[in-house]
Amino acid sequence: MNAPDRYEAILLAPGESKIDVEVDTRLPSAAIFTFRKEDHTLGNMLRHRLLKTAHVIFAAYRVPHPLTPEFQLRIQTDGEVTPRQAVINASEALIKDLGILSREFTKEFELRKAANAANQQQQQSTAE
């Protein structure tokens, strides 16, 4: 009845921006990024990688309310890179890692399938 449409959790509303960057003026080189229609899947992954990235002093995320599909990511850097650039670097590093994961998985999966097939053949030949 008054339930929001389910696609509202996935699709950006007309005119809504995916990411808003708000500069945090209380501290040098700090910013708060608001990601719309995203959740812990992206938030936690980015946060963790940012903490391991050079020049990032602080990185944390929060989901202000579980019913609103957005999260806020707050970053402070040491001034060598902008917070925006830090997020870009972290994302690119993650994309790279996912690429490696994809390749590794394909390789290992094919190996396992080949091993299974060989096992089956062996079993068949011993049964005969």
Binding site: K18, E38, L42, L94, S102, F105
Partner: peptide, 16 residues
């Protein structure tokens, strides 16, 4: 993996 890469790539392209 592709879905995750898309999310991250969107982030990069929006920020750029």
């Amino acid at each position: 993996i592709v879905a995750l890469q898309r999310k991250l790539a969107t982030t990069v392209s929006v920020l750029l």
